[in-house]
Design a protein around this nucleic acid. Sequence first.
DNA 1: CAACCCACCTGACTGC
DNA 2: TGCAGTCAGGTGGGTT
Length: 280
Amino acid sequence: MPELPEVEVVKRGLEVLTKDRPQLLRIELRRPDLRDPMPATALQSWQGARFIQAERRAKYLLLGLAHDGANVTGGLLSHLGMSGTWRLEQSAENCDRIHDHVLLHFSNNQIMVYNDPRRFGVLDVWNLHTLHSHARLAHLGPEPWDPEFTPEVLFAKSRKSRTPAKVFLMDQGLVVGVGNIYASEAFFQAKVRPQRQAGRLRKEDCLQLHLAVLKVLESAIQAGGSSLKDFYSFGGLKGGFQDSHFVYDRAGELCRICNTTVRQIVLGGRSSFYCPKCQV
DNA sequence: CAACCCACCTGACTGC
DNA sequence: TGCAGTCAGGTGGGTT
């Protein structure tokens, strides 16, 4: 999946579509469920509304819709899971690829197509008054750039944790958006081994990790995200960040900084990569 | 209640 | 060529 940078790139692509505020004529559900059953009736209640704005919260996309006038009162909420993509088509003929599960038909002849081979994605509705308590969002921590996420908070919250620091940093209740790729990359940038016990990180480590998370996510967004197996951004452009991974998926290859062989270990059930010389 | 395990699902790849 | 096994960007539920 798409981690935060990939979702941000899709969001920016969707913003272009909102420019002429197209009307969402029809929501076509070609199956009843993705990871969970989709709320068909609630989704269809947005038919006829105009697509006004695109937002992102954590790895969720929020399509802001308005039935009357210009005020967004809610809309659709989408999570791409591990393998979901949104793409734009101009003709229904091009919307029959395998795993094309949901089609949003717009008045300007544009069709947003949700494709998801593994179906770990989510499609739900949201509305303005209950957004903060939405079951899928309520437990999420601050955005990485939110003033609530600081090196001091990272240090304080890690004190009593005995899990590997990488697993700790990927907890979406601490800070959202750090997935498996960028976690490994952030630990490399911070020169901290991902298996270090969270509670034993020093203040300086937390300072470096905080900085690294922001830098890694920002540069990934700048590069248009990472293209691995099946990610491509909304406009169909390939993300380019995978070319600048320092350690992710580079086990056995040489560190781009010191030529030491990159190692792979499993932390929290996820593959994790680090350079044993650069990272302490 | 932190930490761990597993399921969810398909496809790509590896080794025999 | 085929077949079994392994792994993949995430999340949430259940169990120690």
